[in-house]
């Protein structure tokens, strides 16, 4: 592999990490509260608000049912509004984030729903406010599941990020398509695939390690 290709590979990896990292962070910042609200606004729940629950649920489903490549193109005006441009690696963070938010929200919602209802009841008997129940009971108890969910989201984002080449975003996927496929350089394609595999493996292992660390439910003493 030539020096030039190697540099391209390093750059593409950095771009992927940049896009996935920032989209993941923004997605978590918005998806986590949304997930909490989805989980707590249902019937008989802590902050029951059926209208919000239905509307938010619909929006989340709509976003999640749009194939990512379509989403990227469909929200170009929105991307331009936010990023100032619709082309390039930084601009690609916008559709990645838009895809990450509902995905993370659903994962967080699921994790919180798994928390034993008896704990919420116990918190009520202690005179906890709804906000205290969320911050002191639901989030800490759901943390291991949330960490695993975020890991899954990060892995999915790595996959999504391969498609943003369509709007001039960089990254490993874009490198693979342009050099490996369009310029017939199979060794580039192989290298891209290898880096992606290693990346996903690392993210997954890290996520599982953290989830184990924060899980106090099954302790081998």
């Amino acid at each position: 592999m030539s020096q030039q290709i190697f540099e391209l590979l390093v750059n593409a990896t950095i771009e992927t990490l940049y896009m996935v990292g920032l989209a993941g962070l923004l997605g978590t910042l918005m998806g986590l509260p949304l997930g909490v609200l989805l989980a707590t606004s249902g019937r008989g729940e802590l902050l029951q608000n059926l209208t919000f629950n239905r509307v938010a649920g619909l929006l989340v489903n709509a976003t999640r049912s749009t194939p990512f490549i379509i989403l990227v193109v469909a929200i170009i005006p929105f991307t331009r509004l936010i990023a100032g441009t619709s082309i390039g690696t930084t601009a690609a963070i916008v559709p990645l984030t838009v895809a990450a938010v509902p995905f993370i929200a659903r994962l967080v919602e699921g994790a919180i729903r798994e928390v034993d209802h008896g704990l919420i009841e116990a918190a009520h008997t202690m005179g906890a406010t709804p906000l205290q129940i969320i911050t002191k009971i639901l989030l800490p108890e759901a943390l291991p599941a949330i960490v695993l969910g975020l890991t899954l989201a990060a892995v999915s984002l790595i996959g999504y990020s391969a498609m943003v080449g369509a709007v001039g975003g960089g990254g490993l996927g874009d490198l693979g398509i342009r050099y490996g496929y369009q310029r017939f350089l199979p060794e580039v394609m192989a290298a891209v695939v290898l880096v992606l595999i290693v990346l996903v493996q690392l993210v997954q292992s890290l996520g599982e390690w953290i989830a184990r660390r924060v899980n106090k439910r099954s302790i081998v003493s």
Binding site: D116, G118, L119, E121, A122, T125, I137, P140, E141, L143, V214, K216, R217
Partner: peptide, 12 residues
């Protein structure tokens, strides 16, 4: 109040 299934926080 105390409960049949204790309802302790596993994370604490």
């Amino acid at each position: 109040m105390i409960f049949q299934h204790f309802n302790l926080l596993s994370s604490r």
